[in-house]
Design a protein around this nucleic acid. Structure first.
Lengths: 139, 139
DNA sequence: AAAATAATTGCAACTAAGTTGCATTTTTGT
DNA sequence: ACAAAAATGCAACTTAGTTGCAATTATTTT
């Protein structure tokens, strides 16, 4: 279940981002591309076929973020969640909804809010909107 | 520096919320009331005069959140930040801005965004807006 | 006011998420 | 194919937060 369908897309993304194309990187990126929501390191590990050291996963994710092909989405609980940047604008991406009952996160594509107008002297580089509530399964 | 000016306000808030009025609770709430921004457990500890066990602090914060006099404003890094609920609406409070350079957080009071319209079947209970960028000192 | 009961606090030990240093392996440019 | 550079893995560590249980403090009952 390591997102085989995304394998070639992943290869291209890495090349385009100027990142070395290694097995672990391909595997992690494929998993992220196959997911329809941001994933934590734990969730990524669970979806990998090969066992990849956790330090390596964190370093791969850091490299992806640096190269801007992935970004750290709004965190839920204490873990960071990662998703490919393809649905996202430079300053903000879509809101993320997390169900307080089942814990699942959903991307609210197309529900993006306007940007906050910065207070005097502040420069806003990134805006994230996080939603909590009940998903259709839990209402 | 444990927010003496807020001591009586804290006492009243506890009584009104139906919470037992103990020394540690008064101290923690006074610190939160005196701060002009959300604080992490670590920041709360640093501002307390007495040393209060960390488990106690976490339990006090949980009790405050349950009683709705405080809320978990957001999570930055791996730590949660807490602030008194007095500036907050039922579904959302003001946006929080965190400087990527110095790490300071500022409350953007009066910059609240409209609520996201829920996708079909979803019930939104809470909306949080997080901003990142450079504060006036770091621009 | 004293005893009984309930709530709160503190301590030790533990878990989860993430990081650091260093040795080993893999990739890339020649 | 080979040297240099980059990436990976391992062990140990850090930080944030939690759990179980005993000791203390507060409240209620008598």
């Amino acid at each position: 279940m390591s997102g085989e369908g995304q394998y070639y897309a992943a290869k291209e993304m890495l090349a385009e981002a100027g990142l070395h194309c290694t097995e672990p990187r391909l595997a992690v990126l494929s998993v992220l591309l196959a997911a329809e929501r941001p994933l934590s390191k734990k969730q990524i590990s669970e979806r990998l076929d090969e066992r990849i050291n956790k330090v390596t996963i964190y370093r791969i994710l850091a490299a992806f973020c640096e190269a801007q092909i992935v970004h750290k989405a709004f965190t839920q609980g204490r873990a960071a969640y990662y998703e490919p940047g393809h649905n996202c604008g430079a300053v903000q991406c879509h809101p993320h909804f997390t169900c307080t009952s089942c814990g699942d996160t959903h991307c609210f594509l197309g529900k993006t809010l306007p940007l906050v107008k910065a207070e005097a002297g502040f420069v806003i580089q990134r805006q994230q909107v996080r939603l909590e509530g009940l998903c259709p399964d839990c209402v």
